[in-house]
């Protein structure tokens, strides 16, 4: 019996170092401690041991069992460690580059647009959208620019064919479809749909029949603003523009309203801005856009009572603002989509 137990221990000691898989370990374990295992058999043999030898043999058997359990535990720990190590793989080199190289980014125009939107949202303006394909009435007539007005020159407006009908862009009469030349059309559509008071901005794409160069683009983006309420004054217009320019270009920037002409505002102004922290463009007047008090004729064409309602409107180029803010000198970059440009401003 004693020899038998010693042999079992010797077998286990001899076998376990070679076991490298859990399954092999379990199979081997069964040959020793399983129902038909050698150790199990030896334990069963206890009943044949003479009574006076039983205490000593019992003790020996227990010791043997513990010895073997310890070998099992040690082996299991070794196997688990190996499994874990395999799962984890070799230690990393944290300085290697990430193989997932694609990086998400917002287009600089989107970034600029969002910046402007958030500035205006703080003072109660929300975004209104309108169609890019428009009609002559929404783009001109409703904006106090009748057919024979010199400001309405077919030279730089893009037309759809005479018979074209865009199903979800309503016409006022039988006028033609055009590509909108300014976002002021959204003023009209919004006022015809909603009741005053109204505070909207409408960023969007506009089209000109222009040859593309560093400063001209067949399409570009504008941001129109409209405020309609009772007793809106020129002082209010100046105040919102002062606020906008300070938010975008920083405190210390100044605004200048230069008298000008737009058919849909009266009085009308060009909006100029001067700021001390703009590199080469510092401390000189830079034109940002146009603005003015909504012309009473515009209110008439959308069915608002001009005796009751007053308002201001302004418009500026989103590319232009992005170009000024980031020092971009060619508008074509915005539409070339070179990643080195797109991801520079993220």
């Amino acid at each position: 019996m004693k020899e038998q137990l010693a042999a079992i221990v010797a077998e286990v000691e001899g076998a376990v170092p070679a076991l490298d898989k859990r399954a092999a370990f379990e199979a081997f374990k069964a040959t020793i401690s399983g129902p038909n295992g050698k150790l199990t058999a030896a334990m069963k043999g206890m009943k044949d041991v003479p009574k006076e030898e039983k205490p000593a043999m019992g003790k020996l058997l227990n010791e043997t069992k513990q010895q073997i359990e310890a070998l099992y535990a040690e082996t299991l720990a070794r196997l688990e460690a190996a499994e874990t190590a395999e799962k984890l793989g070799p230690p990393i080199d944290p300085t290697l580059p990430c193989p997932d190289t694609a990086t998400g980014s917002l287009h600089p125009l989107t970034q600029t647009r969002r910046l402007i939107e958030s500035v205006f949202r703080k003072v109660g303006f929300t975004v209104a959208e309108g169609p890019e394909v428009e009609t002559e009435w929404y783009c001109f007539d409703a904006l106090n620019t009748p057919e024979d007005h010199p400001a309405r020159d077919a030279q730089d407006t893009l037309f759809l064919p005479e018979a074209a009908v865009v199903e979800n862009v309503s016409k006022h009469g039988s006028e033609r479809h055009i590509l909108r030349s300014h976002t002021s059309t959204v003023q009209i559509r919004t006022m015809m749909k909603e009741q005053p008071p109204l505070r909207i901005i409408s960023p969007g794409r506009v089209f000109r029949r222009d040859t593309t160069d560093a400063t001209h683009s067949a399409n570009f983006h504008q941001m129109e603003g409209l405020y309609v309420d009772k007793n809106v004054t020129v002082v209010d217009l100046k105040a919102i523009l002062d606020y906008f320019v300070a938010e975008i270009f920083g405190k210390g920037s100044t605004v200048r309203l230069r008298p000008s002409f737009f058919p849909f505002t009266e009085p009308s102004f060009e909006l100029d801005m001067k700021t001390p922290n703009l590199g080469k463009l510092s401390n000189q007047w830079i034109e940002l856009g146009g603005c003015g008090m909504v012309d009473p004729n515009v209110f008439k064409s959308v069915g608002y009572d001009p005796e009751q309602w007053t308002g201001y409107a302004f418009g500026m180029g989103i590319e232009r603002i992005a170009m000024i803010v980031h020092g971009i000198d060619d508008i074509r970059y915005f539409y070339q989509n070179d990643l080195r440009f797109l991801q520079q401003f993220a």
């Binding site: 694609a102 998400g104 989107t110 975004v127 959208e129 590509l179 399409n219 989509n337």
Partner: peptide, 30 residues
Amino acid sequence: TREDDALAVFNRRAVQKLAGENFAECSHYT
């Protein structure tokens, strides 16, 4: 007094989603 138009909201969310999926946003001529 009003909410941003639904299209503006959708575009904003869609671009944000795609930027989060590692897309670089582009802008091409119409």
